[in-house]
Computed example of a mutant assay.
Amino acid sequence: MKRHLNPVSFAAVALCLAAGHAAAQDNTLRINSFGGAYETAHRKCVITPFEKETGAHVQVVTAYSADAFAQLRAQKNAPQFDVINFSGGQEIVAAAEGLLSPVDPKKLVNAADLYDFAKAGLAKGEGPAYSVAAIGMIYNQNSMRTPPASWKELMNPKLTPHLVLTDISNGYGMLGFLMLNKVEGGDLSNIQPGLNAVKKLLDGGATIVSTSPEIQQEFAQNAAWLAAYASDYAYTLTKANLPVKFTQGAEGTPASYITTNLVAKRPNQALALKFIDMSLSKNAQQCFATELRYSPTNAKAVLPADVAAGVAYGASGVKGLLRFDAPTIEANRSAWVEKWNKTIAKK
């Protein structure tokens, strides 16, 4: 005997299945992270606590900022990320292109505790900065008893043979170069003063490298005393038992803002906002500072003395942060790299 499914029952089953699928979708977030030690810290400081608190599942795609931005652009009609993290200023361009949603600070419990610079672009769709990689000077404290207090120390001829410069194809290297250019009298419309300084330094015996591990090698094996680079990597060298410290220059501290952004055209923005909010919490930021030496953007974050010494910390520490205009850098990057390569080829 055949059994016929009641149409009402069939509809009810279909509705339940659809509701179950929607619930699963609403309880899952897809984000990017940057791999390696960063992703390990990201999971410890934000992702795992978020999953435990909300019962949600976070799918992590390892993608650095430039690659994540390229994916976001390619998927603009059907984006796959719910939250996207950037460290190179890509949120400014992405927001202008309508790829990110504006964020109402009233929907973020922790927004009120952020320094103003960290939330300045929310209404435009630029996500809040939840950490900062501060670019300053890494120095060998055994060789330099007095910490360098000024970016002009990079031009000290007594230090030149022990100076490490980083290629501007490296993001941190670009920021360090732009600061050198600034103190030498240049700006984003004129990088020639910086290029002239680089040529002089290379002629005086400075070393140029392209990657972070090469910096470690120079300090470990080749008597490097000084390099313009980031607070997080200074900590990496410290963990490798090298006698280095990080310090900020009096003229300002170039900053790489690490932002967490709400992707437009996604169905579960409420859950995404909860994730963003957790990234802004003092606990998450204290964790990032401890694990990687990133500077907190939450004014209520409290750091132990040894951690605070390695970052831009507190109102006085972040006061000196400066951010070079990311769209201008991107528009000129290729031309600047070409000029840089010609300069270092003539050393």
Rank of each mutant, 00 (worst) to 15 (best):
R145N: 05
E97K: 05
A289P: 07
G127L: 13
L303N: 11
L202V: 09
H42A: 13
G35I: 08
P213R: 07
F219D: 11
L237S: 05
L100C: 10
T328V: 15
Q221M: 14
A149R: 10
A12N: 01
P161Y: 06
N77Q: 05
R30I: 12
L180R: 00
K106F: 07
A240F: 11
A112C: 02
V132C: 02
W225L: 04
S65L: 10
N283D: 15
N190W: 06
V307P: 01
A96G: 15
G205S: 11
D26P: 04
G314P: 06
S65C: 09
L273C: 03
I208N: 02
Y313S: 03
P105S: 09
I31R: 09
T48Q: 15
H42E: 11
G98N: 13
P7Q: 05
E51Y: 14
G36W: 07
F50N: 12
Q192Y: 08
Y235E: 08
V83H: 07
L5F: 08
Y235P: 00
E184V: 01
L273D: 04
T146S: 11
L271M: 12
N341Y: 00
E251C: 10
A308V: 13
A301C: 06
A23L: 13
P267L: 10
K119Q: 14
A66D: 15
D306F: 05
P147D: 02
I84C: 05
N6Y: 06
A289D: 01
V103A: 03
A78H: 07
Y139W: 13
F34H: 07
H4L: 14
N190F: 08
A308E: 04
K152R: 12
L163W: 08
G176Q: 03
A70M: 06
D113N: 14
D203Y: 03
E126R: 15
T260N: 14
